[in-house]
Amino acid sequence: MDWNTIFITTVEASIGWQTVAYALAAIGINIQFGYAGLLNFGQAAFLGVAAYGLAVTVSTFHLSFWLGIAIGLVATVILAFLLGIPTLRLRADYLAIVTIAAAEIVRLVFRSVAFKDVFGGSDGRQNFSGDFFAINPYSPGTYGIGPISFDERTTWVLTVGWILIALSCALVYLLMKSPWGRVMKAIREDEDAVRSLGKNVFSYKMQALVLGGVIGCLGGFIFALSQASVQPDLFGTEFTFYAYTIVILGGAARVFSPVVGAAIFWVLLVFIGNTLDEAARAGAFGSWVTVSQVGSVRFMLVGLGLMLLLIFRPQGIFGDKREIALDAR
């Protein structure tokens, strides 16, 4: 067993581009679900719309990179309004149903044959990240400490990504300490009570949906740029569910929980995956688990770990046990 490689890949995963993209998506979900109580099961669509907004603008229409970013952001806001206006007046479950369906519609439109000229079908779009890497301040080479290192492109993506995470966390921190955040948390507890105190609940829920979507869409940009390509199937519903797992793992309604949750989630996934892979190659499981089956077993073990976490620490890593206890009353 090559423990050295396992160790390096695991440490790299804790700050890698996947952690960044998922953390941003999870910060968005934390605002919507953790603070405002909105069950948005379509976060993948927000990332997808942003990533495609950028990719299509640059690679299909040959417009500038920054215009692509702007179009991605605007598309995300429009999506939030489209989903929010009909559903936010209704009960919470309807938003969950509508968003999960909308996310699939968005994904299927992206991969549809009819729009292949624009979105590129199931192959997606490439060749849109040139301008981004053109302003890369890192000269070619590897950057890092000892064996844990990234090439200059990845380092640039990670730098931008972690700055975006830091800014998003600062934004969430400021907002949630303010009276604005108080209204959000109150809406999560009981909308009617908040309405009876003269607050426009619909407007606040819309603000949460838009803000969560926009922060999530930054994750979409990072996702697209780190791969230098977009494919529709990257934005399936499992993406949203991983992001929810991350929020719950860290503890809902805590500023840093999505970031730490994302790091732990990817560390677990990579560590278990690589360890199993190495073990299977070394024949540790005999004929029980072959190398090709390791991928599935990895998710079973991660699922088991998350179940144990929810049983023994239901409030997540940063959560407050007293709050969970209140629900039991």
């Binding site: 948390k185 109150a186 507890e189 009570a193 908040v194 105190l197 709050e323």
Partner: peptide, 19 residues
């Protein structure tokens, strides 16, 4: 006010008032 009291459980008493 409501027949079934709507105290906002996970907010403190003071936060309830400020709201």
């Amino acid at each position: 006010t409501f027949q079934l009291t709507k105290a906002l459980s996970k907010l403190t008493v003071m936060e309830n008032m400020r709201l």
